[in-house]
Amino acid sequence: MTVEVLAGLSRPIIMGVLLGGLYALIALGLSMVFGVMKLINVAHGDLMIFSAYFAYAVMTTWGIDPILSLTMGIPLWFGLGFVIQKYAMSRAFGISMEAPLIIAFGISLILQSLAQIIWSPYSRALEAPYALGGISLGITTVPKTYLLSFVAALVVMLVLREFLRRSYLGKAIVAASQDKRGAELVGINTGRVYAFAFGIAMATAAIAGVFFGLTFPFTPTSGVGFLIIAFGVIIIGGLGSMLGTFIGGIVLGLTQTLSGYFLGAATQMLFVYLIVFLVLAVRPQGIFGR
């Protein structure tokens, strides 16, 4: 009896953990911007989806593999992020508290309608021969795309973590996020550091977009729902912690698959949003935050 229950549960648990990896991958960039600049980049989901569209365009025009296309996508998105922060957000911070939020909304609106004009509102998907079908993980078979995104999330998370801990720029970003004036006093150009942080966050959004596009079909407005999931991830994971973000992603992924398993597929997203809302109401600094 219990063996059967456990065997039945193993699939949603494994799927949940893997899905959580994808959520964490989407959330890493958001977490970085939120942690460093205290800015909710509401355009994050749309920037991520736009990267999926970019990979789609590269794939359909030149037949380049979506993951390979990231060699173009990552620098492009880094530059885009750098420019957005340097020329729009940095000015907005000086205006008022809600100005950056409103500008991010404007960018989100621009990206959504651009995607709609260029690629139509119909849903698109990224394809790669190695990502088709499933792969056996001993107990259960999972789609290869889930496993790929999980591995990508793990790699990006570890790279970011080490980057923030060891490199000079990484340490400067952490310093600027902890105490802006203190960082400036010891000679850190916080304006530049912010632009780099935004650029790096956008580079992770580019990666997330490609793996998202391989896993799920997407439309120009897919970004909004995943922005909220990503926000839930960083709220659960706590501010600015890369490992916390990863754990937060897995918690939300498990919430989704387990509530789908016990209460039916239709309820699963509802439970994800409920958990996000509850955590916000009870512990806004995050379960792992201080």
């Binding site: 907005a92 409103i102 500008i103 909304f105 960018i107 609106l109 004009i117």
Partner: peptide
């Protein structure tokens, strides 16, 4: 919507 987005950003800045 695109134009509205651009107006929003430009006005705000």
């Amino acid at each position: 919507l695109l134009i509205q987005g651009v107006i929003l950003v430009v006005i705000m800045l």
